[in-house]
Design a protein around this nucleic acid. Structure first.
Length: 298
DNA sequence: TTCCCGAGAT
DNA sequence: ATCTCCGGAA
C-alpha cells in the first residue's frame, strides 16, 4: 500500500517536479541551504529571482561572510522577514570559520547553525547530502495526514503523532527516502494544497484516505486567527527598512543617515514608530546615528 | 482572510 | 505552547 504510494509519487516527481535552479545537482549544498532559508514562509515563485542574484553575488559561505550587513539587507529586498538575511550571514560566517567554508552534512551540526531550525537542517541533510532523514514541513504534514490518516493536520507546531508518522513513512532505502521527501513536499505545494486540493489530477487519489472519507474538514481554519497586517509593527518595520534600502540604492547615496524628520514622516503614530526603530536596532537591522538619523548597518 | 518548503524567544 | 517576525497573492 505505502509502497504503491511511494512508487507513484516517485514516478510523478520524475515528470512533474518544478525546475527550480537549486534542484537536480545544479548547485552546491550551500546553495541548497540558501534556497531553504529564503523559502521559509515564502513562496518559491518569489524566491527564484532573489536566489539567482544572491548566488551570483555570493557563490559560497566565505563570500557572504565578507559582505557588509547593509549589502545583505539590501539584496534581501522585499523577500520579507529580513532577520533571516542577517542570520544567513551569521550562518555563513560560522561555516567559513568553523568548517573551512564547507557545509556540514549531518542534521545535528546543521541544526546548530544560526537560522537553521528542524525543517532546514533536515531538508539540507536530505536534499543536498542525500542523507536518510525525515523532513517535516507544512506540506508534508498535510499530505501525510490526509493520505495516510484521512484527516487534516492542525496548525501550529508539529505534533508527536505527525513526527512519528513522517519517520515511520520514510522509505528505508536511502535514495528512495530523498525522492520521498521531495515528492511528498512537491505534491503538497502543487496538488494537495491547503484550501483547494486538485484531487482530480493527483497521482495517489485512489489511495488517499482523506479523499475516500469525503475530505472531512476541508477548508476549516487550521491555524489560529492571524494578526492583521495593516497597522502592525511588521508593517511599520517594513516601511522603515524599505526607506533605508531605497535611500541606499538611490543617487542620494548616504554618508549620513535618513534624517530624523524624514523618518517621522514615514508613520503617523510616533510611539509605535519609535518602538519599531528600537526593535530594528535590537535586531541589528539598522544603525541609529548620534544625530538621530538612520542607516543600514555598516 | 489564509497560506506560503519556519526560526527563535518567551 | 504561543508569539512575533514581511510581503505577495489566491
Amino acid at each position: 500500500m505505502r509502497e504503491t504510494v511511494r512508487r507513484r509519487l516517485a514516478a510523478w516527481w520524475e515528470v512533474n517536479a518544478r525546475d527550480l535552479p537549486w534542484r537536480f545537482g545544479r548547485t552546491t549544498p550551500w546553495g541548497v541551504l540558501v534556497s531553504e532559508v529564503m523559502s521559509q514562509q515564502t513562496q518559491m515563485s518569489r524566491v527564484v529571482p532573489y536566489w539567482t542574484e544572491w548566488m551570483r553575488t555570493w557563490p559560497d559561505a566565505a563570500a557572504l561572510a565578507a559582505a557588509s550587513a547593509a549589502e545583505v539587507i539590501t539584496a534581501w529586498g522585499r523577500l520579507g522577514y529580513p532577520r533571516r538575511a542577517l542570520r544567513l550571514q551569521e550562518c555563513a560566517r560560522a561555516v567559513a570559520q568553523r568548517y573551512d567554508d564547507e557545509l556540514p552534512d549531518d542534521y545535528e551540526t546543521l541544526l546548530s547553525l544560526p537560522g537553521v531550525g528542524d525543517y532546514t537542517a533536515s531538508a539540507v541533510s536530505s536534499f543536498a547530502f542525500g542523507r536518510r532523514v525525515p523532513v517535516i514541513d507544512t506540506n508534508i504534514r498535510r499530505v501525510l495526514s490526509r493520505v495516510l490518516l484521512g484527516v487534516e493536520s492542525r496548525g501550529g507546531a508539529a505534533t508527536r503523532t505527525e513526527r512519528d508518522l513522517a519517520a515511520d513513512a520514510l522509505p528505508s532505502d536511502v535514495a528512495e527516502s530523498v525522492v520521498w521527501n521531495q515528492s511528498v513536499m512537491e505534491l503538497g505545494a502543487v496538488v494537495c494544497t491547503a484550501k483547494k486540493p486538485s484531487c482530480e489530477i493527483c497521482p495517489i487519489a485512489g489511495l488517499c484516505a482523506f479523499l475516500a472519507a469525503g475530505r472531512p474538514g476541508l477548508g476549516e481554519r487550521r491555524t489560529r486567527p492571524r494578526q492583521r497586517f495593516q497597522g502592525t509593527d511588521r508593517q511599520v518595520r517594513g516601511i522603515v527598512l524599505d526607506a533605508l534600502r531605497r535611500r541606499r540604492t538611490g543617487s542620494d547615496a548616504s554618508a549620513s543617515g535618513l534624517p530624523r524628520d524624514e523618518v517621522e514622516a514615514l508613520w503617523k503614530d510616533h510611539a509605535q514608530l519609535d518602538a519599531c526603530i528600537a526593535s530594528l536596532d535590537d535586531d541589528g537591522l539598522i544603525d541609529i546615528l548620534p544625530d538621530g538619523s538612520l542607516t543600514l548597518p555598516r
